[in-house]
């Protein structure tokens, strides 16, 4: 079996798959929680600036990763 499966590549795919493929949604979810979670809005229904910035960073990283992936595809890495 050893020669039939490229275990090195598979390990890398699994590791980075978990980091990016599971980590990125988690980061996005964190942004959602910061922006709209319990206690996010004050009595007037506004979201505090700090929360806006923090959630913006989470969404920003997610958006940048998508753009990075597009650049990667365009560069012929795919």
């Amino acid at each position: 079996m050893g020669t039939y499966v490229e275990w090195d590549a598979l390990g890398n795919i699994l590791l980075w798959g978990l980091v990016v493929g599971a980590g990125l949604p988690a980061l996005f979810a964190l942004g959602v929680r910061i922006a709209e979670g319990p206690g996010a809005r004050d009595a007037n229904g506004r979201i505090s600036t700090g929360r806006k910035i923090l959630s913006g960073i989470c969404f920003g990283i997610a958006a940048l990763t998508v753009l990075g992936a597009v650049a990667y595809i365009a560069a012929g890495g795919h």
Partner: peptide
């Protein structure tokens, strides 16, 4: 992620 990574690692 898995699709792009798999082609990146050549598998």
């Amino acid at each position: 992620a898995v699709i792009l990574l798999s082609s990146h690692f050549g598998y």
